[in-house]
Design a protein around this nucleic acid. Structure first.
Lengths: 263, 263
DNA sequence: CAGTGGTCTAGACCACACT
DNA sequence: GTGTGGTCTAGACCACTGC
């Protein structure tokens, strides 16, 4: 990693042959540093909420300048993997105590903000071991029939059932998860995943549709079957784009709306 | 703007009194540079698609180092106001010829990508001068009764009507807009706004709901009234967070879905 | 006070695009 | 080759936090 301003453009890739590389495979130093920090993050060298070493320390460890470490951390920070706090340090991001609770939930009350309606009440209807259907397996990069945990729950705001959700989790990683754990944990469920299973969700993709509930769904949400609902299918990923959760939600949108910012 | 490493922390804010400032109002140099570049962008000093001066030139103009200009442009680039191209220069972002056509349209075909289904066919149903309702006025920061232009159109993919949209535009800025302009322009409508009216949309907010169409909407989209549709209400903003368009779309989501990425 | 992240500079060199 | 953005360094100083 040592590299002075007058170093060659070698890049650490020991070419076994002198053929013209199809891809130059040029990767700036700060990207390599970023990858190394990412590895430590992934390996759990620093736990969620903890501080990572200071920029100077990391610079010394990797034998690069502070500026290079800085640029690496800049990107990690932009990806919400890490949070900088001036005067204090850089901390591993966490779904707990994050000033943005419910980072992945975009449903907002039509009037007021999320604080004004208070926290959601959760009631877990089911939490059972099942085998992955072809569809679930595809989303979670498993094989059909692999063990998964399915959780069904309802989120209510002001005692009005608003979200009906099904979660599918890889059975091996979430071995022994119980309904009580899902229902009883204080704070976001993704925070519980961090504490109890060491799984940190880093990003997610959602596919949104308008649908009508089936008979059972209508009963559970206490709405008529003619009421259109938002169907939100989410796949959440840990590090390295490994999918770790499939979630299908039905949202009432008569008093709430899904809010999105485009740029 | 001249500031050497040993400059005082003055910051250009000539304090009229010595009271303790409620807000320190500290703004780093690069933020001030960013604001200046933003002003030039807004004033139209460089047109969409054109190159802005090189980093070295801007550094000389503002009497700061290249690194400081660089950080200013970094943020403008992150906000999609400007596009950097190594070896060529930095260009004013545009909705035309942007490799990401339809930057604000998140509706995707269920199978394949947007290229595979080809461009949308547009048919403009209406384009008329009206007076702003209270609701439209609120969204566009106008007063009730102010002149606005309302456009209604249908977007079809593979000759299947998929989106029914109403657009409201401030009448003063979009004076003289015609249905032919909206329908006939090659490329995104937002690109037409840039070329014909000098209006560049920079960001947008959307509120999404599931709804059933009324009788007229169902006829126009050629769907049954029981088919749930996505209602997408968008407010698009120019520079300085000035709202310039209100758009209400009804999306079919039986063959398409609204795609969102969370992080 | 010391330690952290944040800003700014000056200069060198690299990768890329055009001519 | 020239000019552009992109990377990297070294060092200084500023702003914030907590001891």
């Amino acid at each position: 990693m040592a590299q002075t301003p007058s170093t060659s453009t070698d890049n650490g890739i020991a070419a076994a042959d002198a053929q013209v590389p199809a891809t130059p495979a040029f990767s700036p130093l700060y990207q390599q540093i970023k990858a190394l920090i990412l590895q430590s993050l992934q390996a759990g060298e620093w736990k969620p909420g903890e501080a990572i070493p200071s920029e100077m320390e990391l610079a010394a460890r990797f034998r690069v300048s502070q500026g290079t470490v800085r640029k690496a951390i800049d990107e990690l920070s932009a990806e919400n993997l890490v949070v900088r706090r001036q005067g204090k340090g850089t901390f591993v991001a966490t779904h707990s105590e994050q000033h943005v609770q419910y980072r992945f939930l975009k449903l907002m009350p039509d009037s007021g903000d999320r604080d004004s309606e208070g926290p959601a009440q959760r009631s877990v209807l089911e939490c059972k071991r099942v085998r992955a259907t072809a569809e679930v397996a595809r989303s979670l990069a498993l094989r059909s029939g692999d063990p998964v945990v399915q959780v069904r729950r309802i989120l209510s705001f002001g005692s009005v059932p608003t979200i009906l959700e099904d979660l599918w989790l890889p059975g091996n990683t979430f071995k022994g998860i119980t309904a009580d754990q899902v229902a009883g944990y204080q704070g976001p469920t993704y925070a519980m995943f961090e504490v109890e299973f060491g799984v940190r969700m880093v990003r997610a993709e959602e596919k949104i549709r308008a649908v009508l509930p089936d008979a059972q769904q209508a009963v559970l949400l206490k709405v008529e079957q003619q009421m259109p609902l938002l169907s939100v299918e989410r796949v959440a990923y840990t590090y390295n784009d490994v999918p770790m959760e499939l979630r299908r939600g039905l949202y009432r949108t008569d008093t709430h709306h899904y809010r999105n910012e485009l740029s």
